[in-house]
Write a protein that binds this DNA or RNA. Sequence first.
DNA 1: CCGTTATATTAGCATTTTCGCATATACTGA
DNA 2: TCAGTATATGCGAAAATGCTAATATAACGG
Lengths: 109, 109
Amino acid sequence: MPDSLRQFKADIFQALAHPTRIAILEFLSEGELSAGALIEKLGMDQANVSQHLAVLRARQIVVNRKAGNQVFYSIRDPTIGKVLALMRKYFHTQLKETIGMLDEMEHTR
Amino acid sequence: MPDSLRQFKADIFQALAHPTRIAILEFLSEGELSAGALIEKLGMDQANVSQHLAVLRARQIVVNRKAGNQVFYSIRDPTIGKVLALMRKYFHTQLKETIGMLDEMEHTR
DNA sequence: CCGTTATATTAGCATTTTCGCATATACTGA
DNA sequence: TCAGTATATGCGAAAATGCTAATATAACGG
């Protein structure tokens, strides 16, 4: 595989590599939301959220729709939602293993 | 979801967000490889590859096994392989859409 | 046209990442 | 123990990222 394709994938992962952007995508995975609604749900600064949205837009992970005064965001390809769901599963496995390890250490103390 | 969990996910994505590390994981998804074998397949500097392996190790995405002189790496959880496979699919969709768009532009020129 | 609301963009700064190079560590066989 | 091979680590510079504060743009109601 040419490196440019790997660069493309790396760029997508890079876009996902921030807690705020993950939060944004988790909210959006339940449906379209306005920028303002996201800002409120996240409880973060307007400019900050807008910048994170710009990152997601640049990678075409989200698309936006202008309606009068507001801008509504949604996830462009549901595959991204699946990636996040897989990540959730991965996280649970990792967590369980860690707990198991701690448990083991407890017993052999 | 607490932000610390999102930070954890973000850290995993961060670890995947580099073309070289994606290449490493794609090679490893076919099975265990020694550091030297990876360096040869990648055609990159030894120290550089070693540093990327360190990133993947720190996030526990890969594990290593020492055998005499060499160190063999493998992917710890197959879920990571699935994430990469999904990414491949995502990439194809995106590519097809882009081509379709270009095609459209061609016809309406 | 004006003030207000919603959103985006810019600039400056601190932090993090990546790379190349040099060096360190670990194991092997003679 | 010594030379050689395999791998890891430390360090400094350059580039990318993220935050805050300020400013810009766009649409609305009056």
